[in-house]
Design a protein around this nucleic acid. Sequence first.
DNA 1: CCAAATCGTTGGTCTGACTAACGGTAATTC
DNA 2: GAATTACCGTTAGTCAGACCAACGATTTGG
Lengths: 167, 167
Amino acid sequence: MADDGRLDGLASRLLGLAARHAEQVVGAELAGAGAHRWHYAVLATLADHGPASQAGLGARTGIHASDLVGLIGELAGRGEVTRTADPADRRRNVVELTDAGRERLHRLDAVLAGAQDELLAPLSPGRRAELVRLLRVLVEHHGHPEPQGHPEPGGRDRISGRASRTG
Amino acid sequence: MADDGRLDGLASRLLGLAARHAEQVVGAELAGAGAHRWHYAVLATLADHGPASQAGLGARTGIHASDLVGLIGELAGRGEVTRTADPADRRRNVVELTDAGRERLHRLDAVLAGAQDELLAPLSPGRRAELVRLLRVLVEHHGHPEPQGHPEPGGRDRISGRASRTG
DNA sequence: CCAAATCGTTGGTCTGACTAACGGTAATTC
DNA sequence: GAATTACCGTTAGTCAGACCAACGATTTGG
């Protein structure tokens, strides 16, 4: 095999390569439907968790609040979501899915499913599930690295890490 | 579990999140040693496959030729690689590892191993190997999507091989 | 009422990966 | 052996994604 090199077995590198590939596939597939990853993320989140403020959407999707502004504007311009001032808290905008948005989400669901299938083509259903399981452990661990306990063996001060808010 | 949402089970999204996390961990760890991912990639490739031209390095590491210029310059400035004109083909530069480079690679090997361990902390050794196995299947498939023959099953027009955006 | 915090918004920054073009060199063809 | 074609390294610039800084409007809490 071609695993004589140190790079070929490096989990971090394989993750990066696979993720890049996934982004390509999904991005291209969604672009064919005139959409972006972010559009799907917002529509899906609204469908799954109901109306939300932009801050709430940002927390769930991981999309930065500043990028969310234009994104919601775009979706609202297409009539797929509504952005209305929250009467209970007038700082907030309540973003809500419309019927058109739900319809579009359904189409994008199909597109996404196709993309996933293309991505995972070389894996059997069982292997795909296993992959998802393993990845989910990693991302969940990322959210809660250490509940409590010893700081770190040989641990120096934390290297400034950019926190990511992944819900 | 928190898998009530469509995003939470999406392989492409999990890959992206995990990869981002990996980049953070590895990047921070390497930064603590004054290095970038690219430095390690180049040093490791040279150690594993011997001297190479910059084009060859680019092909193996995936680093773009234009970015490789400054990178090799940096490593050469630190005395960790030598860049000499190939007498057999004077278009080429032969990039070669020095003893200092080998020594630095050893240190970075340790750093990288620590980063991988931190990354994969929540997984048992068996699970880690399984993850690497699955990811490698994906990445290899990416390189050789279809051995030959039929254009693509269900495939529409060619997805632009490189850019995330068709342009 | 005043201070602090939150939300949406604007504008700018930084980085990684890419493109375009060019001079120098090699290989190929006539 | 001159011209054409292809390749290598280099420079400069583009582009998208993720982020930060700061602001006005608003709510919250002492």
